[in-house]
């Protein structure tokens, strides 16, 4: 019996360590609970019934700079939160690494950029980032009101750090939200994200 238990433990451990966690399109979005910039606890499950956008960020990353410097990220945040979408900006940079912010730093960074997410969440241990398979900044996820992942990938189809590419790029997040809200199937539901690596 003891042997069986230890074998089961080994198997469990092996399967956990080998599995790469990820948010898979068509499957339930991994649950999480994180503190926001004000220190308040935020649970993903409390937003059930609403569309949720997850935006991985690092204010020191030039790809994030492209989206905020052009004003694109802020206008997406404003446009969709006005339509009832919950927009969660998440920073998974570890302490001491590029982009790491505490609550005050996050608020200052948002103020400087006139950013308007619903919340800015702090994930310095990277556990939520890893459970979603967040690889880059930005890396975007869209979750529908049932809690299903409907988009996982790049913010748009122009991988560059050039602000001038923003106006002519196809924004995958806007497309996924617009299509799903109109009752249509999301045409492009998974892409390879581009940007800086998440500084776990």
């Amino acid at each position: 019996m003891k042997r069986m238990a230890s074998l089961a433990f080994i198997l469990l451990f092996a399967s956990v360590s080998l599995a790469h966690a990820a948010a898979i399109v068509g499957q339930r979005a991994p649950s999480f609970e994180l503190r926001d910039a004000d220190g308040k606890s935020v649970k993903l499950d409390s937003y059930r019934g609403k569309y949720v956008v997850l935006e991985w960020t690092n204010f020191g990353c030039p790809f994030v700079g492209k989206q905020y410097g052009s004003g694109n990220m802020q206008s997406l945040q404003k446009k969709y939160t006005e339509q009832g979408v919950v927009w969660l900006t998440i920073c998974s940079s570890a302490k001491g690494k590029q982009g790491y912010v505490d609550g005050a730093g996050a608020k200052e960074g948002m103020k400087e950029r006139d950013a308007a997410p619903t919340r800015f969440l702090l994930d310095p241990k990277g556990s939520v980032g890893k459970s979603y398979g967040a690889k880059t900044t930005p890396h975007m996820f869209v979750i529908d009101p049932k809690g299903t992942v409907i988009y996982n990938g790049a913010i748009d189809d122009k991988p560059s750090t050039n602000k001038d590419d923003v106006p002519t790029a196809k924004n995958y997040v806007a497309a996924a939200l617009d299509e799903s809200m109109a009752g249509a199937k999301v045409a492009t539901s998974a892409t390879q994200p581009y940007g800086c690596s998440v500084k776990y």
Partner: peptide, 12 residues
């Protein structure tokens, strides 16, 4: 020529 140079951080 445009490129991205990276070590622990990336710079265009």
């Amino acid at each position: 020529v445009d490129w991205l140079e990276c070590k622990d951080i990336c710079v265009p």
